[in-house]
Amino acid sequence: MSIDFWGLGLQAVNVLILVWLLSRVFWRPVSAAIANRQKAATALIADGKDKQGKAEAALAEATRARDGIAQERTAALDAARAEAEAATKAALEQARTKADTLLVAAKTTIDKTTEAARKANATEATGLALTIAADLLGRMASPAVQSGFLSHLIAAIGKMPEGDRAALVDDPAGIEIVTALDAGEKGAAERKKIVQAVHKALGGTPDLRFVTDQDLIAGLELRSPHFVLRNSWQADLAQITKAVKDAA
């Protein structure tokens, strides 16, 4: 057994050449392709992670925006609700005030209307009562009543101040004695009795004239240009009417 060292060296050179050639045509290109694809994959992964990060950031931003919108919506709803409640309360208060005012005005109007109606009714009733009273009193007029009025007249003259009676006696125009009955219907005796009683009560003899006024219903009154002594149911009814009106 022997070794051919020239052949050994040639084989070594052959293998070295093969190593050099394969490094250039096989190992480097294939490993470069692997490295390039790994780099591309890494870049893709990095890009994907970047996009994922951006997407997550966008999602977080959208979530924050959505939360902000929700908060704004809640705040807007609360504000609108508060404003609506305030407006409702104000409108309610205004309506209540207006209603109270209207109620007060209506009540006042009703009171006024009622009072006016009551007064009108009272006035009408008073007038009707006076008419009825005047009618009834007219039916009750009689000599006895007339005599009573004469007594009242004499008493009233007696209550007059002395000066007034003297002025009345001295009145040159004379004094009218107004009666409800026609003078013709009265007897001369009755007239004389009245004149005498008046003269006596006045303490003088003034000129006396009899005048008939059926509006008196019944009674005797003295009238002069400057003096009236009322003594009749008409005067009484007028006084009652005045008192009723004043009371109303």
């Binding site: 050994l8 040639l10 084989q11 070594a12 293998v15």
Partner: peptide, 14 residues
């Protein structure tokens, strides 16, 4: 070739 001494010796020397 690997059945020959020269080739294997060359590989070992490399």
């Amino acid at each position: 070739p690997t059945a020959k001494l020269e080739t294997d010796a060359a590989l070992a020397i490399l």
